[in-house]
Design a protein around this nucleic acid. Structure first.
Lengths: 143, 143
DNA sequence: GAGGCTTGTCAACTACAGCAAACAATCAAG
DNA sequence: CTTGATTGTTTGCTGTAGTTGACAAGCCTC
């Protein structure tokens, strides 16, 4: 893997600088952004030079505190900068979140917690049986 | 301002260590958590010593990358460490998070998703019965 | 043209995040 | 009791995040 590639953080920060700015005027300058971020933070938290280094990919691991302040300035969520494949939840986690949204499933999970593995397996077998009866797909979302 | 105060990050990380862990066993140890975090990240990203330093408030500004990995391990959003509202909202779900860390419970929840409310209720009844048999408390003081 | 503003980047330095390896305390087994 | 394994913490140390102060290039106005 070549290390000259920009990196996802640099790409997205650059994209924000190019696209996010008040109507009727050009992009924020680095010093302008730095000054405003510091004002909003109430303390000196970041420099224009560092914003440049993050933007060009020269520095790649900002503290959560700083990255969060940058995200706030541009009006995006801090996870916007994260790598999709790693930081964004995996499909299995998404499925779990969706499942837990069902209050019935949530309570079942809470109550099932602490049961022995054998019992859990037995319960799971009943669930699988119920799925067949109710005509639900029996594909296994294993990970 | 006294600098002996723990800091919000340290407080919440300590809280997670104390509360989020599989049922039937004690909290995660620092080495254990570090090892799992590194496994999940696919590379050496954090050490047990550093986890201790963050937990005790000796170090206070982790990189976004590391804090995000820690949050993922405990099953909370990364903003849990900074945002008050997210923290209170998440704290009420910590029991669920702890339960879901049990792979058996997780799979059960995934498979139970989509079942009719009546079936879920029936399954829940079996779970309650199993809890009695295994000597688990039949009333959850939580929530 | 020259001079005075900007702009983004680079260079040199400092501070501290983060580490490996120690440490003392604790517990279990013998 | 001793021994060994495991716990959370601390102790230097290193690497790099993040800084200040340059720099050259661009854009003005005179």
């Amino acid at each position: 893997m070549i290390d000259s590639e920009p990196g996802v953080l640099a790409q997205r920060l650059d994209h924000l600088f190019k696209t996010v700015h008040p109507k009727g005027r050009g992009p924020y300058t680095l010093r302008e952004a730095a000054r405003q971020i510091n004002e909003e933070a109430g303390k000196a938290i970041i420099s224009a030079a560092y914003l440049s280094q993050l933007r060009t990919g020269e520095k790649t691991r900002p503290s959560y505190e700083r990255l969060s302040a940058i995200a706030r300035f541009f009006g995006v969520d801090v996870t916007y900068f994260a790598d999709d494949e790693v930081a964004v939840r995996t499909d299995s986690q998404l499925a779990l979140i969706a499942a837990i949204r069902d209050s019935g499933v949530r309570e079942l999970a809470l109550r099932a917690s602490g049961l022995s593995p054998e019992t859990l397996k037995a319960i799971l077998g009943m669930v699988e049986q119920a799925r067949k009866i109710e005509g639900l797909p029996d594909d296994d979302p294993r990970q």
